[in-house]
């Protein structure tokens, strides 16, 4: 199939950037979306032009590196799917496809479709962990965990930190990401000791990074490639309010 791409090109953080039109031919339905972009880039290189920069790595939907908004939807039209797992059978010959970077103040563009998501790492560094040094653990089975809790923790822990929640949120809010980590640890006995401090410090860092506030559009939940439910945001709100209003209870 033959496609018309409208791709965001931005030389660097200081450049204003613009949409650019590209034609790409010879695309087959079994190609992945990124293989389609590879093909477009091969053509550009062949013409001596600079290829479109985009982030990608594992290409199997788990590393969370790929990050683009395709036709107005983060990771494109298929539910529960990262860009790298999206295949061209979702498109048809002659389609025009708009491709933009994840847009957020806290995700500054580095080049074209590549953004800096270091803000997510800083949120984890602020408290998204259990403080246990190597070597100080007791036997793993000394701490039984109700299967239901373990499953809930795993539902939240499935987050791949791609940032689609931020990209799709009309408010550029990162609450699904933060709530997922908080929810993961709050559902486990290991996470209890630092539960309150974690809620406070992660939210403080999230705010400091310049993410917006959640106003319950649930766009994040709709585009999350790991289908993490927004009810975790509700739990995070409760965690935070309890921790900040009654820190000692």
């Amino acid at each position: 199939m033959k496609l018309t791409l409208h791709v965001w090109r931005q030389a660097g953080p200081q450049d204003r950037g613009r949409m650019e039109m590209l034609q790409v031919d010879g695309i087959t339905s079994d190609m992945s979306f990124l293989e389609m972009l590879d093909k477009a880039n091969e053509d550009l290189i062949h013409d001596g032009k600079e290829p479109v920069a985009f982030d990608h790595d594992c290409r199997e939907g788990i590393c969370g590196t790929c990050s683009m908004v395709i036709d107005g939807v983060a990771h494109g039209p298929q539910e529960g799917t990262t860009t790298c797992q999206l295949h061209m059978r979702a498109f048809k010959d002659g389609d025009s496809i708009h491709i933009e970077p994840f847009r957020s103040r806290a995700f500054p563009v580095i080049k074209d479709l590549v953004v800096d998501r270091g803000s997510f790492d800083r949120i984890i560094a602020a408290g998204g962990y259990v403080s246990v040094n190597t070597g100080s653990a007791q036997d793993a089975n000394n701490l039984p965990v109700r299967k239901k809790d373990a499953d809930m923790a795993m539902d939240a822990a499935a987050c791949i930190g791609c940032g689609a929640c931020v990209a799709s949120c009309p408010n550029g809010s990162a609450m699904l990401f933060v709530a997922a980590k908080m929810g993961h640890l709050a559902h486990l006995p290991q996470g209890q000791a630092e539960r309150k401090e974690r809620a406070l410090s992660m939210v403080a860092q999230m705010d400091a990074e310049g993410f917006g506030a959640c106003s319950n559009h649930y766009e994040c939940e709709a585009v999350c490639p790991k289908e993490i439910p927004a009810t975790f945001i509700g739990s995070m709100n409760r965690e935070f309010l309890k921790s900040s209003l009654c820190p000692d209870s």
Binding site: G72, H98, E100, A106, P170, N171, G172, E219, A222, V223
Partner: peptide
């Protein structure tokens, strides 16, 4: 939180 707007944005939910 979003200084540069999308050229195209489709609401899902």
């Amino acid at each position: 939180a979003r200084p540069v707007a999308y050229h195209q944005q489709k609401d899902q939910a």
